[in-house]
Amino acid sequence: MIKNIVYNFANKFLSKNNDTYFVNSILRKYKSKSYYLTLYLNSDENKKEYTNINIYDTNNLKFGITYREAKKKIAYKDSVVKKDLVNSLVLIKKTTVGDYPTKLVLHFYKNSLFLFNYTFSNLDKNDKNSIKKILKEKYLNKNTQFDFSSQTILDHAGNYIVIEDDVYFTINYLSSKHQFFKLLNEEEIELNKKVKQNSELKKIELRNKL
C-alpha cells in the first residue's frame, strides 16, 4: 500500500512538473512582438485557400470578444494568465480536442481577442495527419491537395488558420484585420523606412569622406 502511495505521488509530481514546463515553453514564444509579426507575415504570404465556413472555435470564441466574455465561454478553473507585452494578455486553459490533450491559448490586445490556438505536446505523425484531415473536411470540402506547410486557410472576414509543426504542434486561428496585426505591420513598415534612411545616410557620409 505504501508503494502505491509513493508511486501515485511520484506520478502526480512528474505530471505536474511536465505540465508546468509545457506551459512555460508555450509562454516563452509570446514574450516579444516578433513572434506575432512573423506568424502574421507568413500567414499573409502563404498561398491562400478560401473557405465558406466561419473560422472560430467550437466554444464560439469569436475575434474581438473581451477577456471577461471569453472566461464565460470556457471553464476558467485551472487556467494560467500571463502578461508580457504592453496592453496584451495570454490565457492558457488545459482542455481536450477529441481524445487529444492540449492547451487552448487565447491572446488579447487591449481586451480584444486577436488570436487563439491549440498547442499539442505529444502527437505522432498519424495523430497530426488525422487532425489535418479533419480540418480539410470541415473547412475545405476534403481538399486533399491542400498543404498546411505552405498554405493558409482564409475565410470571408480575413481570418486565418495556420499550422506550426516544430517543437509542438499548434493550430493557430488569427484575425488578420485585428488592430493588433495592423499595428505590428505599421511598426514594421516604419522600421524598414528608418533602416533604409540610415543606410542612405551612411552611403552619403562615406561618399563625402572618400
Rank of each mutant, 00 (worst) to 15 (best):
M1E: 08
I2R: 05
N4D: 13
I5K: 09
V6T: 11
Y7L: 06
N8P: 10
F9T: 13
A10R: 13
A10T: 11
N11W: 06
K12L: 11
S15I: 14
S15L: 10
S15T: 10
N18D: 15
D19R: 07
T20P: 01
T20M: 15
T20H: 14
T20K: 13
Y21S: 11
V23F: 02
N24D: 11
L27W: 00
K29N: 13
K29G: 06
K31W: 07
Y36N: 02
L39D: 00
L39A: 06
N42G: 12
S43L: 03
D44S: 08
D44T: 15
N46S: 12
N46V: 05
K48F: 13
E49G: 11
E49Y: 13
Y50L: 10
Y50V: 09
T51Q: 03
N52E: 15
I55H: 04
I55W: 00
Y56P: 10
D57C: 09
D57F: 05
N59F: 05
L61T: 06
L61V: 05
Y67C: 04
E69P: 07
K71H: 02
Y76V: 10
Y76G: 09
V80Q: 07
V80A: 02
K82S: 11
D84P: 00
D84W: 02
N87T: 08
V90C: 00
L91S: 02
I92Q: 04
K94W: 11
K94T: 13
K94Q: 12
T95L: 04
T96V: 12
V97Q: 15
D99M: 09
Y100V: 01
P101T: 06
P101F: 03
T102D: 00
K110E: 08
F114D: 01
L115F: 01
L115P: 00
F116W: 08
Y118I: 14
S121H: 10
L123Y: 03
L123C: 13
N126I: 12
N126V: 13
K128L: 13
K132H: 12
K138R: 11
K138H: 10
Y139L: 01
N141H: 08
K142H: 08
N143L: 10
T144S: 15
F146R: 09
F146C: 15
F146W: 15
D147Q: 10
S150G: 08
Q151C: 15
T152D: 04
D155Y: 05
A157H: 07
G158V: 09
N159A: 07
V162L: 09
V162W: 01
V167T: 12
F169M: 03
N172D: 05
L174V: 12
K177W: 05
K177Q: 15
F180L: 04
F181S: 00
K182D: 15
K182E: 14
L183C: 00
E187C: 03
E190K: 13
L191E: 12
N192Y: 07
N192R: 14
K194H: 05
K194Y: 08
K196W: 02
Q197P: 01
S199I: 12
E205K: 11
L206K: 09
R207N: 09
K209N: 15
